[in-house]
Design a protein around this nucleic acid. Structure first.
Length: 106
DNA sequence: TCAATGACCTGCC
DNA sequence: GGGCAGGCCATTG
């Protein structure tokens, strides 16, 4: 299945602390492929089938673009709110506060 | 093998 | 400052 690229994304997502979120671009940039942000999102699709907290990954604007890929629709929002993250209209309010940069934290 | 798609990002008008 | 279009990488049909 050659999940080499995917495992890279997983390694970042699983290392996201509790109550923190990151963006596709940050993960892609950390992987050395800042222009491959779309591919990172693709890995997230496959990650939802595994034990990867992909709900902590959002786009640059802090919008839950992939919430509909979860079991339901409000599931992703519920998970984030459960970690203390404030969400309104499928958008993270304190996004700058809960933002977690892998290239800086790791 | 070729073509189309996708949980995106950056640049230009 | 806001909106539109193009591009990049990987997977799937």
């Amino acid at each position: 299945m050659k999940e080499n690229f995917f495992e890279r994304c997983y390694q970042i997502v699983v290392q996201i602390p509790y109550g923190r979120v990151t963006t596709y671009g940050s993960i892609a940039k950390y992987l050395g492929a800042a222009k491959s942000a779309r591919t990172v999102g693709y890995a997230m699709v496959a990650s939802h089938t595994k034990n990867i907290p992909s709900h902590r990954v959002v786009n640059r604007n802090g919008y839950l673009t992939g919430k509909h890929h979860f079991g339901g629709c409000n599931l992703m929002q519920q998970l984030l709110e459960n970690e203390g993250i404030i969400i309104a209209n499928d958008q993270i309010q304190n996004f700058e506060t809960v933002f977690w940069d892998p290239s800086k934290e790791i």
